[in-house]
Design a protein around this nucleic acid. Structure first.
Lengths: 343, 343
DNA sequence: AATAAAAATACAAACGTTTACATTTTTTGC
DNA sequence: GCAAAAAATGTAAACGTTTGTATTTTTATT
């Protein structure tokens, strides 16, 4: 049973114009190009709008000029706290730009992006931010066919085919690995999430492997473990590892896994870092407060989110030539308590 | 320099109609009331739409019938993992209903809600979900003036003035407090976030205080501590408490604070639960995996999110009489390792 | 096969803005 | 003060759909 919403107390531009004693065109201009309407007139219009509680209808405007003031954001997951800071800073910044955020998550399933992109396109987004560089052709084509600017966030790759803003995940992987190697560790385990369709995890692992290779170390295959993207799984897998054949160091694909690994050590009464060193990647909220504090490399999520918001708004306004918009955000390494020199 | 988006490869309903050899009205009906168009015609239209890669323009439709297919969601924060599950389930469920989610956070500042609501209203949301029951008059009036259905989520109060879906925060507070009391604790500290403008925290604290009062216990004022809503602050405040005058149990306003408190105990080498019992509220992701596992009361965030999505869609479609839409979602108490009987 | 009733489709007028273009008002230069 | 130029405002035609009403086609009835 469909219902037609009554317009009750909702005045339109027509009512405002009538009350201010001007034409609707002038009212429209007063909002969009205030400098084009004379002071006293503008004041009268503003008063009328205020008195009436006028709220402009962007949809009607969008219909005409094709800009909706809405930006899409697709993340793998909202849960897990991984992208929370990113989403928060991105959407807050967009609000500063007088834009709103249409959010959706694909649950790490790229196929999901097709219906999501379609749904966003139906709402005429002015631009879209996608986490990571791995995406299917179809949604990308749908977007570019309609001239909707795309920005990839979180991962930075020099040779990326879409403009991207983020940090170098290769580098993140190598930084923590080199740290572990420098501390003299030889028996190292890798705990990384599934890397198909996940360029961030893949790059991190590649960076880590490269650092291992560069050091001349040879890592047996069973030390490279794939681990689900959540604390419980990481904890369970680590406990098993500790019981089977504990390494002296564990390099985790991200801080969530590292947190699980540290809890596993607590559960098995293996002191960190005395018996085992653990590093994460990401520096999520809480990583610094853990006991021991987690040694990790920080992704400046808020900075990335803010930057991405600025850039996508700019792209949507000016038209765009992809290349100049890519930006690399530096990483920061934090040597906290979860790692220790082997002696 | 404003740019007019070219319509390049974007066909409209007109092109589809031409290709299918029918009028645009028929195409529109084929999408909105498929049962009203004859089989063969419908097929032809669908083919034409597919071939052309047609994506409907909801804005144009909205302009006419006043439904945008977009629902607003305002949370205090996206970060902190507190509302992550809620947001995720809410938005995923909306996508199932063919709706999109317009998200914004107020940073625990209710005044922020005015511009946010205005911004959402400009985009013609079909409904809005607000976390908690504490809100200012102005945004509420703006919404109801325009007949936009409102639902409050997360907290449930029988006598709430807006329909709400969530759990009883009073009860949550009393459950954990009674648990602590039953274990024989007498020297208890409260660690709760600021409660002005935060009905959830306030109700939890009231529930907890009520349970204390019912037991006949008298809690000195300095044991009721206000604590920032993040791990670091909770950790710092707890460490100070442990050094000054450690209680035998700490009741935390939520799991984030409890996590900080447990880390503080680790840092001070005070074993949990041997020397001190700690309870949280919420059962956030990771609370069960901690060492020790956190004793807490679970808010079924995914259930609340899903239910809320169903209800707000229903309200937007059918018109609404607030009262029957409120729903209380039961809590689950988990007695894990962070509490212990005093002897 | 003719007619009435029902179903499917077409026509055209909204929906609430923006923006060329036309018109009016104000300012400027002498 | 007057004409010309500049600025402000008004008029009306879009924008891409939905939907009430009119028309055509199909189905049912005799």
């Amino acid at each position: 049973m469909k219902r037609k919403r009554s317009r009750k107390g909702a005045p339109g531009i027509v009512e405002v114009a009538a009350r201010a004693g001007v034409s609707i065109a002038t009212v429209s201009r007063a909002f969009n190009e205030p400098e084009k309407v004379r002071g006293p007139t503008r004041v009268r219009i503003e008063e009328a709008a205020n008195d009436l509680g006028y709220i402009r209808d962007r949809m009607a405007g969008t219909l005409h000029n094709r800009f909706s003031g809405t930006i899409g954001l697709i993340v793998p997951t909202i849960d897990n706290a991984i992208f929370a800071e990113l989403i928060e800073s991105f959407s807050a910044r967009l609000l500063d730009h007088d834009r709103t955020t249409l959010i959706a998550s694909n649950g790490y399933d790229l196929a999901q992006e097709v219906p999501i992109v379609r749904s966003l396109l139906e709402r005429r987004i002015d631009g879209i931010a996608l986490v990571g560089l791995d995406h299917e052709e179809v949604p990308l084509t749908m977007l570019s066919q309609r001239d909707v600017p795309i920005i990839s966030i979180w991962n930075y790759q020099q040779d990326a085919t879409i403009p991207c803003i983020g940090s170098d995940n290769h580098q993140a992987g190598s930084i923590v690995t080199e740290h572990i190697l420098n501390l003299g560790h030889k028996d190292i385990a890798f705990l990384f999430p599934e890397t198909t369709n996940n360029d961030r995890a893949r790059n991190r692992r590649e960076g880590a492997m490269r650092a291992i290779a560069a050091s001349g170390l040879n890592l047996p295959e069973e030390r490279i473990i794939t681990c689900g993207y959540n604390i419980e799984t990481a904890k369970r897998i680590t406990r098993q590892l500790l019981n089977d054949n504990p390494p002296t160091a564990i390099i985790c694909g991200n801080d969530v896994i590292a947190r699980g690994a540290i809890y596993a050590c607590h559960a098995e009464n293996i002191p960190v870092p005395e018996k085992i060193s653990i590093v994460g990647i990401g520096d999520f909220t809480g990583s610094s407060s853990m006991e021991p504090g987690l040694t990790t490399v920080r992704f400046h999520a808020r900075k990335i989110g803010k930057l991405a918001a600025d850039v996508i708004v700019n792209m949507s306004e000016t038209g765009f030539d992809p290349s100049p918009f890519s930006q690399k955000v530096d990483l920061s390494f934090y040597d906290r308590g979860s790692t220790r020199r082997l002696n």
